[in-house]
Design a protein around this nucleic acid. Structure first.
Lengths: 244, 244
DNA sequence: CAAACTTAACGTAAAAAATACGTTTAGGGA
DNA sequence: TCCCTAAACGTATTTTTTACGTTAAGTTTG
């Protein structure tokens, strides 16, 4: 029950993270651990906005609360505005109680965000609400229309991955080419030829090979690379676009 | 002053039309012709939504009011939500009077839409509000943040033109390849080699040449073509994408 | 310290697509 | 019939994409 909420507009975040193997989404419990009647229901991180707040700021705020991270990549990708979207079961009742407001219609603005999954930072809220990664391939049933929001977010991500350098938001700063390939394969749901993928990546002037190798792997360690965003932006101005 | 408006959310439409030469945007007067104090101020077609209305439906409704057209191509591309976006000059006062509501903060959802400019249909509202096409290259000063909304819409259109078959929404159903080329040149702001452009277009299986030619042109009439959306959608499923 | 294992790293030939560039042709208007 | 205008076309070169199998570098184990 926060002060000064705008009872008409919310934001919801589809937070994607890549664990090296598959794409995951961050979900939280509807009710905090100390609630008198926890329900086990799950939802996306999101909330009503504060009365005078910008939407993107609200999304950043919520993400920081649940991940401890700042400056997360965020992209608005849709609006979910069916006047009946909150009507199902007891979820509307719950929202009214929680916000202390007389909620009628809530339009939610959906963002997807991309984070490097490795930092398993624990914040108060992420603990209270059991924030957890769920593989995109097996998302449980969520409240409201949150399953649809995720579906839609994945479609947009798949599309935009092909024309914008989003992949680097999901990988560690220093990454191996094969990691990058696995990321593409996971998101696009197809398999790629390793040799051709390598060639294509190595041709890109804004991907710099380092004289550094992976550590702690039980086999030949791969060479690490970094994405040079400045170089990328320069080339982009000259109409060179991305991949794949 | 319509009944039952939602005073928190509006939609605004950046309506693009191509006149064969350059890209245009549809603008309307802020005040109807019969207003006691017409100001000559211009704006995008848009309005507060009706309380129980879907946003896309509101946008369609508004477009139909101003163009007489139905089933217009619409794409949500942004949200303009600065709490101060309405504060400039007397525009907020105007909005309060017009809606008869105590407006505080209005978040506007921006759509771009694509129409075939040829039908110069006149509706009551398009007459009352002097709906007019303005070349994108010379948009006058508009109320609120509408200039920014147009800028942003153009960027998105330019980007999406390259990966989706939007161009056919802007051309007559039967079009000549050279018209298509001029459309690309106008939107992308570059010039393209005619022979190579032709080849590329003719290779696309979902563009069908007709045994029909332009009429009424004072020179050799060009062959007409149509876009076959069904074929396009089939190929798209098999991961063939678009142009340019 | 050698053998076995695991993944990284690499190259070449063939097909397809992109680019650069000048000339001929069909129809309308005078 | 001549003139004008824009439509339609082809070829050689370069670049990109695709398909495909082998060697190399570390780690672990016995």
């Amino acid at each position: 029950m926060k002060a000064d909420l705008n009872p008409h507009i919310s934001v919801d975040c589809v937070v994607f993270g890549f664990d090296g193997n598959e794409l995951n989404v961050l979900l939280i419990n509807r009710d905090p651990a100390d609630a008198s009647h926890p329900t086990g229901k799950l939802k996306l991180p999101g909330d009503l906005i504060i009365r005078s707040e910008m939407l993107a700021a609200a999304a950043q705020r919520i993400l920081t609360e649940f991940t401890g991270l700042h400056d997360i990549y965020l992209k608005q990708f849709g609006i979910f505005d069916d006047p009946q979207r909150l009507d199902s079961s007891d979820d509307l009742e719950w929202l009214r109680n929680r916000s202390g407001l007389s909620i009628e219609r809530v339009v939610t603005v959906a963002y997807y965000s991309l984070v490097k999954i490795n930092h398993s930072i624990q914040t108060d809220l992420s603990i209270a609400y059991h924030a957890c990664w769920y593989p995109c391939a097996s998302i449980p049933a969520l409240i409201f229309d949150h399953n649809r929001i995720i579906e839609n977010g994945m479609e947009v991500l798949r599309r935009e991955l092909l024309t914008e350098p989003l992949c680097f938001e999901l990988l560690p700063d220093k990454f191996a080419i094969n990691q990058l390939q696995r990321l593409y394969e996971a998101i696009l749901g197809c398999s790629l030829d390793n040799r051709n993928f390598r060639k294509k990546i190595q041709r890109l002037p804004y991907i710099e090979p380092l004289n550094e190798r992976q550590k702690g792997v039980p086999h030949k360690p791969a060479r690490l690379h970094v994405f040079d965003n400045e170089k990328y932006l320069l080339l982009k101005k000259d109409h060179t676009i991305f991949i794949l």
